[in-house]
Each structure stands twice: as structure tokens, then as C-alpha cells.
Design a protein around this nucleic acid. Structure first.
Length: 611
RNA sequence: CGGGGUGUAGCGCAGCUUGGUUAGCGCGUCUGACUGGGGGUCAGAAGGUCGGAGGUUCGAAUCCUCUCACCCCGACCA
């Protein structure tokens, strides 16, 4: 009986038209000739102009029919791949009691990013920015044997983050659609361990972004508490992206600029002075570039000294001077690593000045002057630790710099004291730096937009929320977790950012709102309208989504709008083609007017585009 | 949050410095005609709390005070 029912419904289903065949005049596609003044980034401009989205408030958007259809296609691909990776879909609430965030202290850590609300009883709740707490709590209450692990769950849902500065349309919203998945394990290694599922998710993500038709990169991100490469970011490659990716062309190593390691570099404080140390008056010169220009040198010939302080609670802070070349940037995370994870922060300007640092004009010599009184460590980047060079740097005196700085002459014996002065990797990598993987190879730089991030969480949340479970030897163990996110609405924006031209969006077939746009030259002419409807229903019957532009507009308007919305295939129905039983077949990403294709061959040709 | 900027018709803007009747222009919209393969032409029309509140003034889009909203650049994130 059951089997029969299933069979019947399957049959019914396969007989039914599976694709959509919609009329432009009966849906909402408000294209515009001009973009609103507020839109600057390409994806924002085109999504608004093509009638995909409209702004409701800052960082809050309506997804109009075209956008929603695309988003549905993206989420469908995500669902298929997540299910294939063994994850089960569920749905958690967007509204969460604030207490849930107390255990993990994220009510504080997240700070103002958390949307908070008070209900009529005075109870505080938050609009969920993510769901680690809710799901950890759920697992805590529902899993009571190690035999139920591993377990992977996911949801696709609206998230809320009260961003300081929402921007670029769908790229950074305060309300956005996200797929978030969480996995729970007893072990890291081995069968059913975190690593196994992490690898499966990694593969699923590759499948997802490839199927969406996106040009993407997988990039190593900050290593988690477990160590190793415990986190990866998935970036859509595009020049307008905000994230900088560095990669070794030979080994394939790729990483976010903040996390990228730098290969071997030689460094030595040895070297005789080649010129006198000269103090120069340099007033009113904000920024190292202007100072360099004034001193008739380059930022690369200067030393930049950034003052950090340790964040110990009550005791007097100790100070860390991070010295890099003037054209390089100090990386706080790497400074922290160089100090064995000691917690530091950029020095408070007032405190630092009180302590004696001439902020803005600090040089490594500050340790000579202040070292007897204060607890100071100096970390010097390899490229700054070049003893044979004569450097320009601050003079530790307001409005003054020095030239001719020589490490050995200026710092002398202090250089031998490893507790005081250490050479360490403390700066951001940049293009041209040596590859950390292949000797002699250099890093190349590109830009991207982060659309996915997978992470080995370890037991951070389970420990904070008391989620542990007894293994087969009755030993209680912390549950190990992984989490895996995809910015769904951002993916749509990133796609447009990556794929557009001067006329509008160019949608990849897999996530286009419709695969085919039928443009009718004369919709009030019955034979043209008939041909369009007939063709549309045929295409729909084999699962192809079709939009029919039946508007009584001039051809130019329809062609322009067609290019704008970016549907991959345009079929133009006009008298000339119809006389030969043909339609004009044109792909959005190809120039020209397309070519004549017999109507009965159109379906096959459309299908071939999809695969 | 720090810095910069903008609010005038559905969209893009002018007008504000130096206050003066009925607030303009382009696009879009509506009506009609001619058109008809890349945002066509002509004629006509509709459409405005000038972001809001208060003040100065005989009189405010314009000057003053407060306020709200939005955007851009910086630090974080899917």
C-alpha cells in the first residue's frame, strides 16, 4: 500500500511540469535605468537595477522574485550536498533567550553585534546571530550515549547581526540568510571523528560552490585551538573583494592575508654603521609616507615601531614594541603568537605617553631609555632586522626622526639578550614574500569575497555549556564540535560581483532565477505569443525554468532588460525566425545576436547549457 | 564607534551662498498619435509634508538650534 502510494506520487510528479513558465508581466521585476545614489559596489548596483532587491532599511533588504528564485536554487544545491555529507536539516528559532549566551559569555563577547529585545515580561532575548549555544544546549538535552555520535545538523535561516556598518547591498547586511551546520563527536581522529566530518564538509563546500558556477578559492584561515589547519575560508575570486588572498603558485598553499605564513628570510643585526646617526626636525608630517618623502627616502628604508601592552588585569602592564619595515604592517595575531599566546592589545595612547613612549616617534631605542624602569620586550620582523642597513626611524622625541640608524651601534649588547630583543615573524604577508611551502617561490596576491567558513571548534562550546558524554569505558569526555557556515545571500551578491558586464548581471545557469528568457517581439501578435507559450511549456516539462517577456514594450527595452537581469539563455521570437520555424538563440555571456535554431532543437540545446 | 558626506516627485539631480508669489530639470509613469530588432519621436497630463521638530522673520527648501535617517572611508565578520 505504502509502496503503491509512493509509486503513484512519483509518476504524477514526473508527469507534471517541473520547471516554471512565468510571464514577466505577471511578476515583479522592477528594473531601473539608474541605480540609487547609495549603491556603489557592482553587485549592489546591478541587483537593484535588475530588480532583484530593494532596500527596506540600513542593511535590510527585500528579496524580490528574481533574487528569491536564485536563493532557492543556491539553497537547493546546499541541501543536496549537505544531505550527501550526512547532515540532517532542521530549524532553530531566530529568537533566543539571552541566558543561553551567558554560559559562553557571548552576550559580552558579541557585544553590540547582538540584537537584543525585551519582551512584555521584561525578559531579554536576542535575535540569533548564530546558533552554537542553542544547538549545544539541544544536544546536551537529547544525546545521552556516545553511540548517538557523530551527529551533523544544519539549517538555512535568517541571521541577525547589528553590524556597525552594513554596506555594499547584500554583501554585509544586518539581516541575512545563512546556512549553518554543526557536528558533534567524541574524538578528533578516527572513525566518526571531527577530522573525518570536517573533511567531508570541506568536500561538500567545494561541490556546492563549484555547482553554483562560482570561481572560488579555499584558503587557510586562523588555526583553531586544536592546532593544524583547523579552519578554511571559501572565497569567491574577484578583484573587488575585500579579502586579500596570498598563494604559493607551486604548492597551492593559499591563505588569508592575516593568517598567511611567510617563508624563510635571513635576518641579522650584524653590520657596521655606514653613516652617522642624525636627528632631523620633522614637524607636521602625519604618516610614514610623508616622513619618508621629507627625509628623501622610502618607507621600505624605515623602521616602524608599534607599541602594544599586555592585558593583565591589575598589575602594571608590560610593553611590547613591534618593529617592522615602514612598508609592512604589524599583525597583532602574529605578535601574540610570538609571545606564546600572551594577551596583548594596541597600547592606550595616554597610558603609553605617561609611561614615557613618544607615540608617533617611537624607535627600538625606546628600550634603552625606558627599559630600566619598565618591562619592555622588542620583537623585530626579519625584514627589519637587517644590520648592515642604515635605517630611518623615530627619534623618541616629538617631531623628530633619525637617519643612519644602525642596529649594532644603537642597541649594542641588548641585541644579545633574547629576553629583550627577539627576531620574529610579526607582520602581514604580502605579494612577493617568500612562500612558506616551497623554497625560492614567492607569494602572489589576489582578492576574494568570503562566502563560506568551516571551523574545528573543539570543545569550546561544549565545555562552556557542560556538554560531555561517557565513552565506552564510562569515562566522561567533552564533546568535540565543528561548525560550518555559508553566507547564502552573500553568495548571490558575490556571484554578481564576480560575474557581470557593462550591461548587467551574467548569472551562472545553475543559480539563475530562470535558465531561459523568451523575448517576444510582438506579444499582441497571436502566432508569436502562441509559439512562446508552447515552447515555454515544453521547456518547463523537462525541468527548465522559463521567463516569458510578454510586455508590450519596444524591442530595445526588452533586450536591455534581458541583459540586465542576466538570464543565461535568451530566445527571441520574431516573424523572420518564426517563418523558418526557428527562434533566435543567444547566450547572455556571448556577444552578438545569437543564431537561428529550429524550435524542436531548442530544448536539447538549453539542456546542454545546464550540464 | 572615529572621520567624511547626503536628505527636494518612483529614480537621478538643480535651486540654498545673497530668504520673496505658483519649487524646477532629466528619466520613469499615465493619455493620444506616429512608430516598431538594442532604453524611439511628438503633443498633453498626473505626481512634492523640500527628512522631522522648534526658532528667527511680514515671509524659510534657503538662515539658526535640536533631532532622525541614509551613504562612503577605517577596525570585525557569512
Amino acid at each position: 500500500m505504502n509502496a503503491n502510494t509512493t509509486e503513484t506520487s512519483t509518476t504524477l510528479h514526473s508527469n507534471r511540469a517541473r520547471g516554471a513558465a512565468h510571464l514577466w508581466s505577471k511578476t515583479l521585476i522592477p528594473t531601473t535605468r539608474e541605480a540609487p545614489a547609495e549603491a556603489e559596489s557592482p553587485s549592489h548596483i546591478w541587483l537593484v537595477r535588475a530588480g532583484y532587491i530593494r532596500r527596506v532599511g540600513s542593511g535590510i533588504y527585500n528579496y524580490l522574485p528574481l533574487a528569491w528564485r536564485s536563493l532557492q536554487k543556491i539553497t537547493q544545491i546546499i541541501r543536496e550536498e549537505m544531505n550527501a555529507a550526512g547532515a540532517s536539516e532542521m530549524l532553530m528559532p531566530a529568537l533566543e533567550p539571552i541566558e543561553l549566551f551567558k554560559d559562553t559569555k557571548r552576550d559580552i563577547d558579541y557585544g553590540d553585534l547582538l540584537f537584543k529585545s525585551i519582551d512584555r515580561h521584561g525578559r531579554a532575548a536576542a535575535l540569533a546571530p548564530t546558533h552554537e549555544e542553542v544547538i549545544t544546549n539541544l544536544i546536551h538535552n537529547t544525546i545521552n550515549s556516545y553511540k548517538q555520535l557523530p551527529l551533523s545538523l544544519y539549517q538555512i535561516q535568517t541571521k541577525f547581526r547589528d553590524e556597525f556598518r552594513p554596506r555594499a547591498g547584500l554583501l554585509r547586511c544586518r539581516e541575512f540568510i545563512m546556512k549553518d551546520a554543526y557536528s558533534f563527536h567524541l574524538n578528533i581522529e578516527g572513525d566518526g571523528g571531527l577530522n573525518e566530518v570536517y573533511d567531508a564538509m570541506y568536500q561538500a563546500y567545494c561541490n556546492i560552490f563549484a555547482r553554483c558556477g562560482l570561481d572560488y578559492s579555499v584558503v587557510e584561515a586562523e588555526a583553531g585551538p586544536i592546532g593544524g589547519s583547523a579552519s578554511h575560508e571559501f572565497m569567491v575570486n574577484c578583484d573587488s573583494g575585500e579579502d586579500t588572498i596570498l598563494r604559493c603558485p607551486e604548492s597551492g598553499y593559499a591563505a588569508n592575508v592575516e593568517k598567511c605564513e611567510i617563508g624563510k628570510r635571513s635576518a641579522s643585526f650584524e653590520g657596521e654603521p655606514s653613516q652617522e646617526l642624525e636627528k632631523i626636525h620633522t614637524p607636521n608630517l602625519p604618516g610614514i609616507d610623508m616622513v619618508a618623502e621629507f627625509l628623501k627616502t622610502q618607507p621600505a628604508a624605515m623602521l616602524k615601531t608599534i607599541v602594544f601592552q599586555t592585558t593583565t588585569d591589575d598589575a602594571e602592564p608590560s610593553w611590547v614594541l613591534a618593529v617592522v619595515r615602514g612598508d609592512h604592517e604589524v599583525n597583532e595575531g602574529k605578535v601574540k603568537d610570538a609571545l606564546q599566546g600572551q594577551s596583548i592589545t594596541l597600547a592606550d595612547e595616554k597610558l603609553a605617553k605617561q609611561a614615557g613612549f613618544t607615540i608617533g616617534y617611537v624607535s627600538p631605542c625606546a628600550i634603552k631609555a625606558l627599559g630600566s624602569r619598565l618591562n619592555i620586550r622588542v620583537l623585530v620582523d626579519h625584514d627589519a632586522a637587517q644590520g648592515e642597513r642604515a635605517w630611518a626611524t623615530g627619534a623618541d622625541e616629538k617631531d623628530h626622526h633619525v637617519t643612519g640608524f644602525n642596529w649594532k651601534r644603537e642597541l649594542g649588547n641588548l641585541l644579545n639578550d633574547n629576553a629583550s630583543i627577539t627576531i620574529a615573524e610579526i607582520r602581514n604577508a604580502q605579494a612577493g614574500d617568500p612562500s612558506p611551502r616551497v623554497d625560492g617561490q614567492t607569494l602572489a596576491q589576489s582578492k576574494g569575497i568570503e562566502v563560506g567558513h568551516i571551523f574545528k571548534l573543539g570543545s569550546k562550546y561544549s565545555d562552556a555549556m557542560g556538554l560531555s558524554i561517557a565513552d565506552h569505558t564510562q569515562q566522561r569526555q567533552s564533546v568535540v564540535m565543528g561548525c560550518y557556515g555559508i553566507g547564502v545571500s552573500r553568495t548571490l551578491a558575490a556571484c554578481v560581483e564576480m560575474s557581470h558586464d557593462d550591461f548587467g548581471i551574467i548569472m551562472p545557469p545553475a543559480i539563475a532565477p530562470y535558465l531561459v528568457l523568451i523575448t517576444i517581439m510582438k506579444p499582441d501578435q497571436e502566432n508569436q505569443m502562441d509559439a512562446a507559450l508552447k515552447l515555454a511549456s515544453k521547456l518547463a516539462s523537462i525541468g527548465i525554468d522559463v521567463l516569458i517577456d510578454d510586455r508590450k514594450e519596444r524591442p530595445g527595452v526588452k533586450f536591455k532588460d534581458g541583459d540586465l537581469v542576466g538570464i543565461p539563455i535568451r530566445l527571441t521570437i520574431g516573424d523572420k525566425a518564426l517563418d523558418q520555424n526557428c527562434v533566435e538563440f543567444k547566450k547572455r555571456d556571448e556577444p552578438g545576436k545569437g543564431d537561428l535554431v529550429p524550435i524542436n532543437e531548442v530544448a536539447i540545446r538549453c539542456q546542454s547549457i545546464l550540464t
